[in-house]
Design a protein around this nucleic acid. Structure first.
Lengths: 217, 217
DNA sequence: AGTCAAATTATCGTATACAAAAATAAGATG
DNA sequence: CATCTTATTTTTGTATACGATAATTTGACT
């Protein structure tokens, strides 16, 4: 946990938006938030700025900040971009990966397989992140890696749900193996396409999940 | 110009980083900046947070903020991502563009041609931005459009220089025509590839420019 | 003389105070 | 009774003040 109050507030609000405690369009009142987190308005304002920067809130001058939870449409849009970035990472990784990085990638995916064997979806979630992190590092483009991480983080709270969708984990693993194969063979375009589909399937699964949730309401 | 002091400070520092007045690694002292912009530390701190969010500065806890001007390597990396995003915009636009949007795109490019005929590179720069803006809007993915705009803005100060490179403007226009043709024909992959090359050429031109500048030093 | 420790100084992070602008409420006028 | 104007109140944006932590300097001891 961060020692800075501003960061605590930022993460706290972020969490409450992700969990739906703070709904779309809701006003982010500085004073209420300050009281809620037992700090003054200063760190709250800094947290709000960070939220605006992350796209989780909008700021209207002299009017204040408002929650800006991504709509269904926007989520799909984000997945569309994410799949492209992941594809680029894989394409570049196929051209630039080192032997050590490839070994690490394989080892990480072995971890994924073990997590499935143990039926531990939380562990799978963590090792899955590691798998993609390996590819980010191997793409040889730090800026791209950071941008992709940023977007992944933004889609994160929704991803965690997706993986629980029945039958997704083994399929995801199979896709991982194919991606590794393409990267190892230096087949950049294949690795690109496979990764793109890998992410977009998650987007579609997310779609399924939303539909399912709507039928429950 | 923004009415908020924090925004003025943000843009001011951004400008000074772009023009090289503030060099890489330089300390962004809150008090000095406050004096320089005739404001208190509060808006300066908010501006610094925005800079960190934009990637133009790094913040070390309890140590302060430091300029983080993109290195040559990082610039190339940014162009690599930019070309991918522009490519995606064009690919999607080829599938989703409306008749009105296509008409606007053609009209804008006619403006580009006129700017060249008049030898007005500033005007060409402006209409060129409009051209790409048309494609962003036509891609039907607002999130993608925003992300691409963000990155374009970050590469902006360098782009302005690139277009002055001899012979670039007419070549750029030719590329525009080919992109329009592909989008109109609904050839998504062609539009993608053409746009990607269109941006990467600018990256290479940027490379040329840097080399040229280094020989002058 | 060199090194370690304590005191000092500077700067960050937060709290509070104040000013300006917008939203709201109240009152007057047609 | 409706509407416009004006006063009040709420809230944002900025300035200043204060406390805490890290860097620096000074001094003592080996």
């Amino acid at each position: 946990m961060s020692s800075r109050a501003a960061n605590r507030v930022f993460q706290g609000i972020e969490e409450q938006i992700a969990t739906g405690q703070l709904k779309d369009g809701e006003k982010l009142d500085e004073i209420s938030l300050a009281e809620r987190f037992s700090v003054s308005r200063t760190p709250v304002r800094e947290a709000l700025l960070q939220l605006v920067g992350s796209g989780l809130a909008t700021q209207i001058p002299k009017r204040g900040c408002f929650v800006r939870a991504p709509s269904f449409k926007e989520m799909i849009e984000m997945f569309e971009v994410m799949s492209e970035l992941e594809g680029l990472c894989a394409r570049l990784a196929a051209r630039r990966i080192t032997d050590e990085q490839l070994a690490r990638l394989k080892a990480t995916n072995a971890g994924c397989e073990q997590a499935i064997a143990e039926g531990d979806s939380d562990l799978y979630y963590a090792t899955n992140v590691d798998f993609h992190e390996c590819i980010y590092e191997a793409c040889g483009n730090q800026f791209l890696a950071n941008e992709t991480r940023r977007l992944r983080r933004r889609l994160q709270s929704f991803r965690r749900l997706q993986l629980r969708v029945r039958g997704r984990m083994p399929q995801s693993l199979t896709e991982h193996y194919k991606i590794i194969e393409a990267i190892e063979a230096g087949q950049a375009e294949v690795a690109d396409e496979l990764s793109r589909v890998h992410v977009m399937i998650q987007g579609e699964r997310f779609n399924d999940l939303l539909m399912h949730m709507e039928t429950l309401q």
